Simulated assay, not measured.
Amino acid sequence: MAPPTFPNGLTLYTIGFAALRYPALPPPPTNVPLGNIVGALQYVPSAAQHHVVAQIASQYLNALIAYQTSDEPTLHDPSLPQYYISTALILLNFLASSSPDVCKHAAKHPALLNDVIEKLLIPDFVDRMKAVTRPPGPMGIPPAKFDDDFGTLLQFVSTMLLYRAEIETLHPRINELIPKLREWKRAYKNSPVKTIKNASERLVDQIQGMDPTMISMIRGMQETSLVCGVTSCRVTGPERLTVCNGCKIQRYCGREHQKADWKYHKNICNKGLVEPAED
C-alpha cells in the first residue's frame, strides 16, 4: 500500500493545522511545520488542548494511521531514524494520550501497535536507535534526543494497551517484552525523561494483566477531559456529550452547539466532505 496523499496537498513533514487558531481563523489552514506544531501543542493551555486535539484528529487521523501502516520505504529502513520513530507516530502518540476517541479509532488498526511491539522485541533495537543519526527539525529545531524518542515509543504502547479489549489481534510475543521493560526501567531510572522508567513499569503491569478497576479508572480520567466543540461551553465528560457522526472525533453537548460550530468544523470534518444530518 502506497503512502497516502495528505489533505491540502502537504507532505507529512509540513502538514499545517488550522487547529492552533481554531475557531478564530477558519481554513485554509496556517501551514505550520509538523516539528513546530508538536512542540507548540505542549504549551496550549489544558482547557483548550482538547479542542486542538479534536480538530487535528478530525482532519488528519486517518491519513496519519494510513501513513504509519503503509509501505513507505523510510519506515522500513533500519538505517533511517523514521524506522524507529516517525513524525507521524510522534503526533499519533500526542493525539492518543489526549483523546480516548483517538485511542478507540487507532485500536481498530492493530498493525499500528503491533509494528512498534515487533521492533521493541528486536534484541539490539535500543542500540540501533541510539546510533542512528537524527536530522535537525525545520527552522533550526535541534535534533530529537534518544531518550525523548524512546520514551514516546513506550508511552504510545502503554496508552494503546489501555484499550486492549478493543484491539482485535495483539502481538503474540508481547509477553517477551517484560524482561526488556524491567531492564529499561533499571537502566533509565536516572534519565531526565521520566517517561521511560514510568512507562516501562506500567507496561509490565499492563502486559501481565492490570487490574480492570485500575484500567477503568485511568480510562475514566482520560474521558473526563472530553469537551464540547464550542470553546466557550463548559460541558465535559462522555455522558453529557455526543460524537460527531462525520469525523467520530469532535463532541458536542447538543444540537444547538453542533450547528453553531459547523461553520468552522465543516472545513475539517472528514476534510469538509460531510454535512451534518438535518433534524
Rank of each mutant, 00 (worst) to 15 (best):
L153N: 12
E223D: 09
G35I: 07
L75R: 13
Y84E: 09
I218P: 04
E166F: 02
V32E: 10
S98E: 10
S70Q: 11
K108I: 07
G39H: 10
Q208E: 15
Y22I: 00
L92I: 04
N114E: 03
M214D: 11
H171V: 04
L121T: 08
A96G: 11
V126M: 04
Q49N: 11
T195N: 14
T69F: 01
Y84T: 13
L80T: 13
V204Q: 06
P110L: 12
S191W: 04
L154F: 09
C244F: 00
Y252A: 08
A199Y: 00
V235S: 08
L20F: 15
K145L: 15
D77H: 05
V274K: 14
P27W: 02
G9W: 03
T152M: 01
P276N: 12
A106M: 03
V53S: 09
I90P: 02
P100E: 14
D279M: 13
V53A: 10
I117G: 13
A66H: 01
E183N: 13
G272L: 14
Y84L: 05
A187H: 14
Q208A: 06
H76A: 05
V32L: 15
S99K: 03
L170M: 06
I90Y: 08
E176F: 05
S216K: 13
F150A: 06
L162E: 10
P135E: 15
G220N: 09
K145T: 14
W184R: 15
A165S: 10
D124I: 07
G9K: 08
Q155F: 00
A111N: 14
L75G: 11
F94M: 08
I85G: 08
T236G: 02
F94V: 02
V32C: 12
P23V: 08
V227R: 14
